[in-house]
């Protein structure tokens, strides 16, 4: 028996090792959401990010001049927009007072730099140089001047990883700004798509898509992209709407983390409501 095992090992050791490692990999995949794995991951990427931030800074210096020019131009445009918005804000304030609406704006922003990227077409992630010490928490939205870039997924003391919109594991409730119709947006490996959109919905090409207030991740509207037509699914009652994101994930360097997480109060209220009817 021992001789048989010995000869079996000698003849097939490559395949045995491959099988063991593949089984081990599958086990690791199943342990992804375990808190212990999350803790190890936070420590590991925190240590790695402190090294990559140095390298990233070196490469960023070259692009600073060009970026400065762009920022000056953006600044001028924003100044013009600001004056228009001030006018609108005054009118808005009056109307709000009339309707006794609660002001929900004014979320603080945490500036951050992207220090490394995983530009996979499936699982896009970016590492930011802000973490727990800057009050960053899991679930906070990451935005640029153009719109939503992603959601914080893992946090260490000084660094954090955000899933970009080009990540199959990130799904966000969005709405058409014009028609106010809601839908679930996800990355399907090729495009950003709003899935299971009833064919009766009036979402048209060119419509601005923003995050929905129904979202448990982003509680107020942030621009996401523009609708780029439907994937005409002939059968069934649902359509898929393609969305072109405003943010260019390959070029994103400076971002803001929006210091807000979905209200626990709302979550618990909804949960209690569901439990009541189960």
């Amino acid at each position: 028996m021992l001789r048989f095992l010995n000869s079996f090992w000698y003849n097939f050791k490559e395949y045995i090792i491959l099988t063991v490692l593949v089984v081990l990999s599958l086990f690791i995949i199943s342990q992804n959401h375990s808190p212990a794995v999350q803790r190890v991951r936070a420590i590991a990427f925190g240590a790695f990010a402190s090294v990559t931030s140095v390298v990233s800074d070196i490469f960023n210096i070259k692009s600073l001049k060009k970026e400065n020019e762009l920022l000056r131009e953006t600044n001028a445009k924003l100044m013009l927009q600001l004056s228009k918005l001030r006018e609108a804000a005054i009118i808005n304030e009056e109307l709000k007072n009339l309707l006794a609406l609660k002001d929900t704006s004014g979320y603080p922003l945490i500036p951050a730099n992207v220090i490394s990227k995983s530009l996979s077409r499936i699982q896009g992630t970016i590492t930011l140089n802000v973490g727990k010490s800057d009050s960053v928490k899991v679930g906070m939205p990451v935005i640029t001047d153009k719109g939503l870039a992603g959601i914080i997924y893992s946090v260490s003391n000084n660094y954090s990883i955000a899933r970009t919109l080009q990540n199959v594991d990130l799904k966000i409730t969005v709405k058409d700004e014009r028609t106010r119709e809601n839908g679930l947006m996800k990355w399907n490996g090729e495009n950003l798509v709003i899935i299971n959109v009833p064919k009766t919905f009036q979402i048209k090409k060119g419509d601005r898509i923003v995050t929905s207030e129904l979202s448990s991740l982003v509680p107020f509207p942030i621009p996401v992209g523009v609708a780029a037509g439907s994937n005409n699914i002939e059968t069934g009652i649902f359509n898929e709407i393609n969305v072109v994101p405003f943010v260019d994930f390959a070029k994103v360097e400076n971002v803001f983390v929006l210091k807000t997480v979905a209200s626990k109060e709302i979550d618990s209220l909804e949960l209690n409501f569901l439990k009541k009817f189960q």
Binding site: I17, S25, I28, Q31, N32, Q123, T125, I161
Partner: peptide, 25 residues
């Protein structure tokens, strides 16, 4: 090569935030 692939995949997954195990396998 097989063992090294496992090690490289593990380190890559753990520092980039991709699904832990996908790069390993």
């Amino acid at each position: 090569g097989t063992v090294l692939g496992f090690i490289y995949g593990f380190f890559f997954d753990i520092v980039t935030g991709s699904l832990l195990g996908s790069t390993i396998i």
